[in-house]
Nucleic acid binder design. Structure first.
Lengths: 227, 227, 227, 227
DNA sequence: AATGAATGAGCTTTCATTCAT
DNA sequence: GATGAATGAAAGCTCATTCAT
């Protein structure tokens, strides 16, 4: 996971070797921390995880959003690429579903990413651009799928994206089956007509694991007694 | 709202009159505060809202969960009642949908309640009991609806409950239309067969208001660039 | 010095005894610290000097200006009283000089007070009021002194006040003689005519002590090697 | 401005060509920065202005005072020259006033210089020497002016210099009129006798601009109430 | 029993100074 | 010799929790 981003930007001369190493340490740490804790994570914690002083993080990323941007640009580009891929699928609905499921998993595994995607209109240009691009591609797929008569005509791309963002909230990181199941159910609701339901993954939620299924909502101090 | 729960438990001798009064003040204040701020709200804020000292809250509810439990028992009993009501509906699916939509609104308007419902298995016995009771009732409705041939056979009550918890996350408090729309779409996915889609409320999400729709996820510092 | 301020305000019920005690400790410490270090002194330092935790200072005076206000209201009221006194002097010029010299000493001994007086128009109402009141009284004296033919007609009250603020900057705390001397010289410049100079205090500055005379300007890191 | 001081001292072998260039860049930058920000300016800022690394400044001037000394030697030499010029004026008082007014403007426009001049007795020998030289020249003028019967006999050169240092503090950089006015008033106080006051520049301070006049004192956090 | 106060621990941010390259 | 990076220390501020009255 700590690989990509070999260069940052064209235009600024490359960082010194050790600095670049630290930059990567910080980005890697932040990725990890943001994924688990969300974007509110303290700079302190990131610095500690990266093994550098807190001030170093500030030097490299004076603003929190600088860090977020640098971090999620990579991920978003990945998403755009995946979306473009999906757009070439001759079966629009299949392409759409594939892309959405993939996106759900991505977000589910990365709380920070989910937040970035949710922050419509307030991010960096770069991020906004990527988001807009994704929306446009999904939109095209939606239109095609509607034209094919598979997708109901009264929905728009954002209906789908919104639903999937929420699906991504369900289940904890290590429980993709729950998301699969829920996603299938929800997507079934978007079909024009249906003679019989799409087959569900067999992992019906049981009393025992609903706790884990809903885990992400708990984020409160109710449960764990701090000390 | 400040009525129910006059005594706490059999077994502990009743509180002094003023103490009991304070207990209720705190519960009422906490209900309000938790609804708006979620379960993470500071004890300080609750104390202020109740007009008592912070230490009083600690004395009465040493642990945060003590407060949460005492508080939501009342609300859950209300839900149980509503569920039992729904169970008497001759049209199981109609009863089910009605109950679920009501629950969605309730949770949407009460952040704290949503969190409590999500925390399955970690609450008090009392809360767990109530939750189980609700699940049982919904289960009965599910079985009936499946028997009626309306609800697809491969789902269980918890699938529905889970889906609805998530629907409740969408849109901000004052935007029930978004929830209506999304809820309709999702419930459509649970039908056995469908010749044409259920009519949607016309409030298709627009680019402009997706920000608000996803608001609950944003809670981060990413956005505002202070200076 | 740690006496006055027994009650704070009408309207808020009095603080608990221990709290009031701490409040006074803080005010006394702040008076001391502000006098020496100026208004920029850290809350930390004040807290340490008062023997309380930093958070206690914040609780009692959430904003720095709250502390400054509480602190200097007393001093300013004292100044207003002294000015009113001066206004009753039958010899306007004598009254004026007396008041100004007194004020110079006060400011010289209290760096913070000088800063408060300098912050025209940006303080609390209360402080602004006091300042305005002082200016008005001085103004009346100026007019009378001009009418008496002693004070030159082409100056205004603010000329005098400004000059004295600067005189107060000269010399270090324990060197009132320098201020006396300089003040006399400067005030001589405000006379309409003069047949011979006003007698000066004999403390002509010598090479040796100019350093101390100009001390207040040094406030830089040039001199002392921090460690 | 970046001319003088090509070599530093006899005795240390000359710096390498590039090092000497950097030395000058740093001095030029420091002059600028100190003038605006005062002697407390961060080394970082100077380094940035000079286009060199922070560590380079430290290497060349390990102590802040090393930099200050090297820097203000040039300026002080300029002052000495100007003083010598004034000493040739046949009208001693006129020469004196001219020199002092010039000095006031110089200091007013250069916060750092004012601080250096104030730090009597703690600078380098070199600076102290220059200061002493200036004092000596002014002294000669003072004696001549006293002999001419214009300047009161009970003052010494340092009285004048001190008074002018303070006048230089008044008003902000772009407000020479305030200094002119105040300077005139103060110098009037040094005359032996006076039948009528010297004409003042008409810029009587108004309530509105006293804030600006006293600006230099305000440097505190008292004022702005952030929220 | 109730309270408001006190506190220590935590996070954010900045800066002077030193270090590795 | 020069550099940009790193850092520790400090100050500002907040909050959950405990304490003295």
């Amino acid at each position: 996971m700590s690989s990509v981003t070999p260069t940052r930007e064209a235009g600024c001369r490359p960082l010194r070797r050790d600095a670049e190493r630290n930059r990567q340490l910080i980005l890697d740490a932040a990725r990890e921390v943001f994924a688990v804790r969300g974007l509110d994570a303290g700079f302190d914690e990131i610095a500690r995880a990266a093994g550098v002083g807190a001030a170093t993080v500030y030097r490299r990323f004076p603003d929190r959003s600088d860090l977020v941007d640098a971090l999620f640009e990579q991920e978003l580009e990945q998403m755009v690429a995946r979306a473009q891929d999906a757009a070439t699928d001759p079966d629009a609905w299949a392409g759409l579903c594939g892309f959405l499921r993939w996106m759900v998993e991505l977000q589910a595994r990365n709380r920070g990413l989910a937040q970035v995607l949710a922050a419509t209109g307030h991010g960096t240009e770069r991020i906004d651009d990527d988001r807009a691009q994704i929306a446009a591609i999904v939109d095209a797929l939606v239109v095609r799928a509607q034209h094919d008569g598979v997708l109901r005509a009264d929905v728009v791309a954002l209906d789908l994206l919104l639903a999937m963002v929420l699906v991504a909230q369900a289940g904890d990181v290590d429980d993709p089956a729950s998301r699969e199941r829920l996603g299938t159910l929800v997507l079934d609701g978007f079909l024009t007509r249906r003679d019989r339901p799409t087959a569900l993954p067999p992992s019906a939620p049981t009393e025992q694991d609903v706790a884990r299924v809903l885990e992400p909502l708990r984020r409160s101090r109710t449960v764990a007694r701090p000390r």
